[in-house]
Amino acid sequence: MVSGMSSAPAGVAGALRRANRWGVLEILLWILAVAAWFFLPEQHLILAEIVNFAILALSLDLILGYAGIVSLGQSAMYGVGAYAAGLFSAHVTGEPLSGLLVGGLAGAAVAFLTGFLLLRGADLTRLMVTLGVAAVFMEIANQADWLTGGADGLQGVETAPLFGLFEFDIFGRTAYAYSLGVLFVLIVVARIVLASPFGYSLRAIRDNPLRASAVGIPVNPRLIAIYTLGGAYAGIAGALFTQTQMFVSLDALSFQKSADGLMILTIGGTGYLYGGVVGALVYKLIQDVLSNLTPQYWQFWIGLLLVAFVLIGRERPRALVRAVSIRLARLFAGKAASRRVAEEKP
């Protein structure tokens, strides 16, 4: 559909390809994440949770960071994915990978169907619509207690061992490895999608929808497509949560989930795929430390830190990542590589 790519000058194609190559910092992050499995056995639970939040934020990054769709309703897809995986496990099979697929499909279905509502307006409308959709799903789950267990949560979720070999233990060993694997696959898929002409057309829509449509990009179908993909990611995050916790409650559909996702993405920065990972790491560690220090007042300190963070400048973590990335690249591969990383800037 975008035939322009093949006829583009070789220099542009090369630059685009270089911009999508794996960075040194990125590889380092994955090495550290895997090393954490071996060297931080006591931290597997919180690490698995961080990965889960990272995937939720990644799903938001796809739609917000790349397509400019603001949303306060990511919990709808996350929660429906979580419940779908939970019900699938309770009634069909506890096999985790098929459950993940079911969760992803459920999230995608919700996103696809509600995506059409997003085409109706601009940012403020979208905020309200996504918020409303999430609230509707929450209330449906609350009322349908014969299916979802209502406010008491869904009982009887059992996750079978991964590949029939690795049992999900209470220490989160399998859970962290599994979550990390899922995150890796999702990031690889996201990279491929975003490096495609489709991915670039999204960024064009984000930066200027009117101009994008003027150069022949079908804006609405593209928005629905990425929103559906984001929904699938959120659904997978929800399913992952259900499978590793063997429990799902209305919290999965609550506004708090959407807000957490958005907050994490804000901390980590949008539009470079790793904002969710960075944000989740920072947010969860701070939350963990504070809630251990003062179980009664930790929410006050979190609030204060967030306000301070936004005032100081929320672009900083991303700038930091970029700066470190450039420096590392220079260290590893000399000047050519540093030029490449610098080009990554949108």
Partner: peptide, 20 residues
Amino acid sequence: KDDASTPDNALRLAQELVTK
């Protein structure tokens, strides 16, 4: 530990209490 009245938190905290 404070579970903030939500089941997700309660489970996570209980898990940490048992394992860590």
